[in-house]
Design a protein around this nucleic acid. Structure first.
Lengths: 132, 132, 132, 132
DNA sequence: GTGGTCTAGACCACT
DNA sequence: GTGGTCTAGACCACC
């Protein structure tokens, strides 16, 4: 599996947020594993044609979320996955995401069965921590 | 089920977006049905203690999305549900939402089974267009 | 109680971190209460003679930590205090802080009794959530 | 009690600072006593898989703080504990550390009693200079 | 008016 | 050479 970042200039979401999202997704899909090294800040800035500060902001956000660990002078690495939030908070967050997802599905007039099918299909592509 | 709008003042999402989201969700849950009348702009502005311009922006966005229709002199109503997007586009949108949802789940270290359970649970609360 | 921010230019800690720390402390001491409004970004930048971006970074950090809530177009406010971390994480964090504190005390050759006295004294100045 | 240095690679604090902190803490806990010999620079560098320059910087900082003394040709030793700072300065430093500690505790929503308990518990593990 | 994003370019700390 | 901080100044979204 290869790992490639890309910027969608016609997307309204902030550049740094696009990068954060893509790294988070790559980790969740198992394309990036704990210990893997991410390209350098300046490297990404040059390749994606964005300002180094923008990449820096993305890196900092990822570090704050515990997705990566940065070691000054050494680089940025995918962190050991662990979640420091309380169970109540975790359930609240995921619950809201699911509801938003289903709200969208209804408005797009997806039939129930189709949503279930797409969901099941996607689930198989992710890397679950329980190995299931 | 009654339908009540409310703004959460310690939520970072823009006021107008909170309103849009709540109306969309109420429709998806079946709390609001096609033809139902929505309170007037100034009514909501007064009740929610929000600038009328903010309500106007929310209504405008809802109308743009085809969720509501305004009939001059009569008020604003929930639209007949229709979706003008192509199948490819619809699948792309929902697919991305589902992936974002699962990305979150993995990072929160939910086990696979638990995600399936929460998802199935939520599905039952929505009003699917095929009546299923 | 008055609330005043100040920058110590001869301190090596980053400017934005100094601001974050001072706001956090003011909240913990009860000098700032939930709902209180913080001076505007530009206001602080002008008063403290630092770049507005530096203040913005401090605000964003405070928001991520859940200390403040920012509402675009309205301003920045002290948030309702709540902690989303798991008990294990909370204990880990506080435990480390206490150990670092005591390590310092030993190296400064404070006698045991004196540390206890200073600690007890400080405790009285803070605003505990259990009201004790 | 044995004394072992280790670097936590997914910790954002600089390597040299981790080493400084661990030596300081070991001294404060009484695991290292005045006169004890510390492994050589190259020994540590090899064991911790760290650049010798990094170890050198840590030693340098420890010596600057008066925690260790290097005797040419003999090695590096834990110094006789002495503190050259004025009382006012010592009080200021410890006071700030305690305040930072309590600020954290309040934000983590620890109840007053719990903080007192954890603090008292930690105090027992340290080696106080008055032997108490 | 509020805060948020991005660019450009300088300087610093760490390995 | 790594990432982190700060400044300066532009533009945008929200209220």
């Amino acid at each position: 599996m290869s790992f490639r970042l890309q910027i969608r200039s016609n997307d309204t979401t902030p550049l740094f947020a696009q990068i954060v999202h893509q790294v988070r997704e790559a980790v969740a899909l198992g394309k990036l594993r704990p210990g893997d090294r991410i390209p350098t800040l300046r490297d990404l800035a040059a390749r994606l044609l964005v300002n180094p500060n923008t990449i820096a902001k993305a890196f900092q956000e990822l570090e704050r979320e515990g997705v990566v660990v940065t070691r000054r002078g050494a680089g940025t690495f995918i962190a050991e996955n662990h979640c420091a939030l309380s169970d109540a908070e975790r359930n609240r967050i995921l619950g809201e995401k699911i509801e938003a997802c289903l709200t969208e599905a209804v408005h797009l007039r997806f039939p129930r069965k189709e949503v279930q099918r797409l969901f099941a299909e996607s689930m198989q592509r992710f890397r679950w921590t329980d190995g299931a």
